[in-house]
Design a binder for these strands. Structure first.
Lengths: 132, 132
DNA sequence: CTTATAAATGTTATATTATTACATAACGTT
DNA sequence: AACGTTATGTAATAATATAACATTTATAAG
């Protein structure tokens, strides 16, 4: 059951841009691309990004300070994210693997901490880059 | 079999500071703390941090832009890192769980990508913060 | 020991990423 | 319409990180 989030004007402009780009985008590159649409200041971008992250429409790739559209239609609120990142071409894709997400969502250790969220980033060389 | 890395002067000053702090430290907080020891510029800090990360003496907590001493004596080169982060008090600790690291080091999917490295960050509330 | 090379340092400037503070407008309910 | 919440606009600035260049120190080879 998906809760429909009505994106505001800026949120929609920024989400559409990221989504269409097909890959991760950085905040100031987003800013540059939406200036013609009237979004002039970094804060306007960051506010939209914050909201989009909060509702799970995009995710932040922490190691790259970049944002990518959620590629997993069922992930509403991004409590459990995993990505593969090519260290050569910087291609990023979201990993949707139910075994992995089950394993991590249920993970617990002896720290007494209950984990409510995780983010996993795998690094390596993608198919194309391995051949070079 | 540990390879002994002889830390340079700046590397040693900075590693000792982070190590003694017992938690994650941010670059500019490190800078502030080592200015009396003659390290005056951000770049001097970042260069030491880069090297310390490279040889596995410290790790970067990507979601916090902070650096923590490796708490796992056997992890030389940080190819496989996992942390638990309390979202309330910001306490961070390194997770050393051989099942988890085996599971993730051996993880592969159908992307054709060979993962040589990963970083996992779990979020939640630590014991103390749960009680509040 | 000296030459060569790589690693580390010092310094200045600047780039990149992100937030604070404050004022105003639009939206969703009742 | 009145209220509370969410979103927007704008300016300034804080926080994080790197580029470029000159010099010095450490390591290893001859």
């Amino acid at each position: 059951m998906q809760k429909e989030h009505n994106l505001s004007k800026n949120q929609k402009i920024i989400f559409d841009l990221i989504d269409k780009s097909g890959g991760p985008m950085k905040a100031y590159s987003i800013l540059f691309n939406v200036q013609k649409k009237g979004i002039k200041a970094p804060l306007q971008v960051y506010r939209a990004l914050d909201k989009l992250v909060e509702i799970g429409k995009i995710h932040k790739i922490e190691s790259r300070n970049a944002f990518i559209a959620c590629q997993n239609s069922s992930c509403q609120i991004s409590k459990a994210t995993a990505f593969s990142i090519c260290e050569s071409c910087e291609n990023v894709s979201e990993i949707s693997n139910s075994k992995l997400s089950k394993y991590l969502s249920n993970f617990s250790d002896n720290s007494g901490m209950k984990y409510s969220k995780y983010n996993l980033e795998f690094f390596g060389l993608c198919k194309k880059c391995k051949l070079k």
